[in-house]
Amino acid sequence: MCAEIDYSAQSECIRRLHQIFGNGGNAHLDLACGTGPHVRHFIDNGYQSQGLDINQPMLNIAKLHCPEAEFSRQDMANFTVEQPQDLITCFLYSIHYNDGIAKLKQCIANVHSALADGGVFCFNAVEKQMIINDSFAKFQLEHEDSQFTFSSGWDYCGEGDKQSLIVNIEKTNQDQSLSWQDEHPMVAVSFEHLQQLLAPYFNVTMFEHDYEKILPWNGKSGNAIFSCVKI
């Protein structure tokens, strides 16, 4: 499902933002780190990097990819760190896995507490009022003599703070065709509301959702990168 994700470009973009806004430190924590591909890139760029996730099998794979890193099974809405962090990241819209505004607020407060003075929190988010429910990202690949088709998209009813991420997977080979569908509950939030939630804790700068260029958010697009400096 993640074959087309450019983890290197994403990590490098956030590393550059950290160089611009950060405190010069190299202690890094990746929230919802999954199997650790972003952690790997930060380690290779000189960071003391660690990760947390609620899925232990993913963390087991992450440890294989990054044996020098520490990984812990924790919920990003309620986590602790032993030492203050200089950079905390949350890639792939995973900030929305905080299911509801209350958990999102708790996550933001926890991140603030976990950061060192002048530390930076970087994540990407989607504006709930600009979600197009029938718009799906889709790609195909071949693996072990099978053709896989993956698609994913947001679903939002138009009001409230609940949305879903819908994932479809199809596998076809000479013998059979199989399909799976899944739906993940996510928090829906407007950028205006998100900025209000962040304001007591951070100085916030928003950027276009472009990992190849660092461009200020144009005020219109429905996806953005948030760079948040602890105050």
Rank of each mutant, 00 (worst) to 15 (best):
W154Y: 11
F148G: 02
A137G: 11
G222C: 00
Y93K: 04
H143N: 12
Q106T: 14
N55M: 03
A125F: 03
H143C: 10
L52K: 11
H193D: 11
G160D: 07
C122W: 01
F202M: 05
D6W: 10
P216A: 12
A27W: 06
R73S: 07
C90F: 12
K230L: 02
E12I: 00
L29R: 04
I5C: 14
R73C: 10
H112I: 03
N98L: 08
K230Y: 05
E170Y: 06
A224H: 01
Q195R: 11
Q74R: 09
D75L: 09
N23L: 02
A109E: 13
H209V: 07
D175T: 08
Y47D: 05
K213M: 10
N124S: 06
F136C: 02
I61V: 13
D99G: 02
F191T: 03
T172G: 04
F71A: 02
F79H: 10
Y97S: 10
D175N: 12
K105A: 14
D145T: 05
Y47V: 04
L215C: 11
Y211T: 02
L104P: 02
Y7N: 06
Q10E: 15
S177W: 06
A102L: 10
I214S: 11
Y97T: 13
N78Y: 13
E170S: 11
I5Y: 11
H184Y: 15
I225W: 01
V204Q: 01
F191P: 02
M130N: 11
H96R: 11
P67S: 10
D145E: 13
H112P: 01
C122Q: 06
L197C: 10
M1A: 14
I169N: 00
K213T: 11
N45D: 13
P84G: 09
H184N: 10
L31D: 10
F21M: 08
C157Q: 07
Q174A: 15
H65C: 07
D134H: 10
N223F: 00
Q147V: 09
Y211N: 03
E4S: 09
I108G: 01
A3E: 13
L87K: 04
K213C: 08
K171I: 15
K213G: 03
N110R: 14
N55R: 08
F121M: 05
K220G: 04
E208D: 12
I88S: 09
